[in-house]
Design a protein around this nucleic acid. Sequence first.
DNA 1: TAGGCGTGGTC
DNA 2: TGACCAAGCCT
Length: 351
Amino acid sequence: MLFKENILSWYETHKRILPFRDIQNPYYTWLSEIMLQQTQVDTVIPYFEKWIKTFPTLNDVALASQHDVLKQWEGLGYYSRCRNFHKAAHIVMNEHDGIIPSNYDKFLSLPGVGPYTAAAVMSIAFNKPIPTIDGNIRRVTSRILGRKKMRQNAQARIKNYLQIEIDPLRPGDFNQALMDLGSSICTPTKPKCNQCPVNEICIALGSGNPESYPEKMKKKKSPHYNVAAGLIWDRDKFFIQKRSEKSLLGGLWEFPGGKVEKGESLKMALKREIFEECKIKPTIHRKVGVVKHVFSHFSIEMNLFHCSINGEKPKTDLPSQWIKPNEIAQYPFPAANHKLFKILDQDGWNI
DNA sequence: TAGGCGTGGTC
DNA sequence: TGACCAAGCCT
């Protein structure tokens, strides 16, 4: 049985038409691979199309402000991907004459580009026979080779195996075929082995329980926090501040506030947080709403209160703005804030 | 090297 | 409905 022939002929009949596929444009390939990190194809498509419309070339990305690129990324998550891509665009423009490097090591050295992304861009955009190893391919090869433990040793073995199997004439298609196989047939649970083009050589299937490959890692339970935030009004404008680039949700805008400490009421916590962040003691009015939001490693329940400032001026080290409700669209906010905006829109934004 | 880093979909 | 999952990278 010919592994790569079967994989590629399966791909020909099953591949999806995607806006970032079959376009020989390294910028499109690079951007899509960054967006696809830990993110499903259907989520990425609208973001990709909107981004390309706003920034048709890599030079447009380099010329844009971080604020503007984050605005386009808003809602996609893992915002360091966006900040790193923005930095990398500058490097390509300034140090590579605007040409995306077609050399693996040079491309790998760009911020936000790791072994997966470098291999994907090299193989898809530059036709270089370098195998990609992502979550899908790790699972597919774990099952084909019958290796339950996917640690350092196995990683090298996967690479060796794929380096031999990869089609030197169509390396990009080969890599994408294996990833598609992993996401549609060789799924983590309930794999559709009867539809698999390489089921005859799969050791995990032969073992009778392919789903048990590879061995799953135990995950830590993530903590939950109560959070209070203030919608601080001065006449028809409210106060927002920008999060530090190095923090969680770095570079996005938010309302002042923070975690509720043990023994604190929501309003006590909010007064304390606003004083710590802005050095003012606002009057806290009614609660606007509560939203629950799950992050990658913890969850929150955010309670938003209307506040007013009694003539005081907030003093903050972070960039800040007074904006009107209709100006929200200009600022990149995290998803939890957008949930609050929905509540505010229904509520009429009135104190 | 294991943990930090978002979000939306699925069951 | 909580737990898991999805085309990783950085520190």
